[in-house]
Write a protein that binds this DNA or RNA. Structure first.
Lengths: 224, 224
DNA sequence: GTCTGTTTGAAACATACGTTTGACCGGCAA
DNA sequence: TTGCCGGTCAAACGTATGTTTCAAACAGAC
């Protein structure tokens, strides 16, 4: 199941519990009892609960950001000077995520949910930590998005990126539950890869939508 | 500023603090001291912290769902048998939200953030409460979406609705922070109405995107 | 084997939480 | 006045939290 090493057992338990219940709602005692280690081990090995949260993120995010940088390198090399298209950029990201070595079958969805929590559950220290540690691949992704959508104003692009992040984080964070519902209602099986394959066209279409109208349409109009 | 009635003062303070910090991170002592009422007043008037959370939602959601039902009635009457378009349906929703009478200038964004938190911060009791109390307008919205996108398969529509919910809940749940970032980086002021006006075309375009490709594009292809 | 630094263990610490209690106040009906 | 009753208040309750303590167990080097 897991390594018998205390540090990893704590990280495994914390990762799963945080994803299930959020950060504040998960106590160190839940974590240590699930990990079958002593309560004091968390503060001994990590220093504090906040530092444990950082470590949970770092364990996934550090190798992921390396993989992502490689994918971007390869993409830009293939494009040979031309800026990569929006589709190519989005696929580079999703493939990097999907192809990360998983600790277990829930690997991706757990981490997507954690990322979503990090964004919504506004833990100041976490936001600061992520910005400090992983600003480089994030900025690079932003630059690629900018070059792939030169027709958008900065403000439009900014908001549409937030919409993309939202759709992605939200969907992935609850993908287990959503897959179950679909299975029960329509009898359809779905993999994370298939969700991603449906998500990317949705995002690309949204990003490339006609100019946002800043006023609601008149009550009589009806755009197809 | 506010009514000097204890119940309303508690609701006002709780609403704002919940939106700023989340539910678990907001203590009754913070609420009562901000509201300048005695600590015991919350349990006296509402019974428990969870019941207070429900009351905060009910104060906004009950009139909103009435407004929304009216907007849907009016929309369907205008369409005279024809199913309303996707744009019309989405605008009926956002206009109902934007036009709700506001307690103060932060009214909408506070409540959008609360709705986002309700969805992401999976408090079991809250989910249950909202489903029990407000299932009718929700189901109606779903039916309108279905009739507005007959070209989609049930599975595609299901996932794309999740993507829309995600983009909306996520954006609105952090809209204050996002607005601040935009203000600092680009010096642009943004209202919730403007965010909604940018969000709706994004969602509509995503919903109406061409068929999802179920396989990533080959490494050489490059779709515009 | 003995020493040394690291890791675990059970217990306690101080603090914060949601909730409850019982005294107290003010208006109103009898 | 008297008695009541909805509301407020300070104080306490029991519990759970993150963190610290210090002794015991362990591992590796000499």
């Amino acid at each position: 199941m897991a390594q018998s090493d205390t540090v990893d057992r704590i990280l495994d338990a914390a990762e799963e519990l945080f994803a299930d219940r959020g950060f504040s709602e998960t106590s160190l005692r839940m974590i240590t009892s699930k990990a079958k280690v002593n309560l004091a081990a968390v503060n001994y090995h990590f220093g504090s609960k906040n530092a444990l949260i950082h470590a949970v993120f770092a364990r996934f995010l550090t190798p992921f950001s390396a993989t992502l940088e490689n994918a971007f390198d390869e993409l830009e090399a293939r494009c040979d000077g031309e800026p990569p298209t929006l589709n190519q950029t989005l696929w580079a990201l999703t493939e990097s995520a999907v192809r990360m070595p998983q600790r277990n079958e829930k690997g991706i969805s757990i981490f997507m949910r954690l990322l979503g929590l990090a964004y919504t559950q506004s833990q100041g220290h976490l936001r600061k930590f992520l910005e400090q540690e992983y600003s480089q691949p994030f900025s690079r992704f932003m630059r690629l998005l900018k070059e792939a959508t030169p027709q958008l104003s900065s403000v439009d692009r900014y908001w549409r990126i937030q919409f993309m992040l939202g759709a992605t984080a939200f969907t992935m964070s609850s993908s287990d539950a959503l897959r179950d519902i679909l299975q029960n209602k329509l009898g359809v099986e779905t993999t994370v890869q298939e969700i991603a394959a449906r998500l990317v066209p949705f995002l690309a279409a949204g990003m490339q939508a006609e100019d946002a109208m800043l006023v609601p349409p008149s009550h009589k109009s009806s755009v197809a």
